[in-house]
Amino acid sequence: MVEILIDIGISVALLLSIVTLAAFLTFVERRLLGFWQDRLGPNRVGWEGSLQVVADMIKIFFKQDWTPSFVEPVIFVLAPAIVLVTVLLAFAVLPLTPGIGIAGHLNIGVLFFLGMTSLTVYGVVLAGWASNSKFALIGGMRAAAQMISYEVFMGLALIGVVMQSGSFDLVKIVEAQRHLWFVVPQFFGFIMFLIAGIAEAHRLPFDLPEGENELGAGFHTEYSSMKFGMFFVGEYASIVLISSITVILFFGGWNGPFLPPIFWFMLKISLFIGFFILLRAALPRPRYDQLMSYGWKLMLPLSIINVAVTGALILSVPA
């Protein structure tokens, strides 16, 4: 009974901290972008603007929750929930440290993660369709095409890690990296996984579903108030998710000397989050067809080669 209560406690605490962290990232991103773009960013609310998130949350909660008359109301409301829920569910299998995690020892951890990120696309596509707006529709279409293409080699890119550790269990994968992080033997796998991950979180340069320059706001053009907020938090939560899974699969998870495991884990994911934001500050956005041909013609063959070479090496070198 007590164990169940503890599990529930950990789940709730994790859920809350992830959502809070994701919301806080909106502030971190604006400050970092400000720093890189020779400007200040939000610095008025609280110490150095640290309470900006609170102000934004108050604003977004109290905005009129408006559903335009021309939309498909049920799906329109459901879509942002799908995005946020699937992203949060994926966190369930992540072992933050040996002790902290909801279902850390799930023997299909990697597959569960892939499944949940794949489901996210439904939220985006349905939002685009249910909005009954041409800009949103184009955004939704782009999202579907992009995420399906990048999903394919995302799975293939991390097969190398699974082959080396011999398990789909994320805890075992982290433990297998006690001596050597998988980023070294699986460097190409890491690069490809990271690219697919950025596409999965649809961040610049892979933010075509939003494509603000041509599409206004893409699939969430018609959304406002907290329904928009859920897309927003969902996007930042998926940044945290992709950063965490990258750290777990390739950078030894919580492993690190002297300091407590949670510290190492947080440090590593912070670096990745910073990298994501830096990308946004630095790169232009490729065109839709360029993105697709990059995914199918370059990344997919490379990831297959990576799997083949890894397999050949594992088979040729006796354990």
Partner: peptide, 16 residues
Amino acid sequence: MSQDVGQLSPVFYVFT
């Protein structure tokens, strides 16, 4: 122009 192809930063530099 660079903003139009999705690059966010140059517009801030040139405005400086």
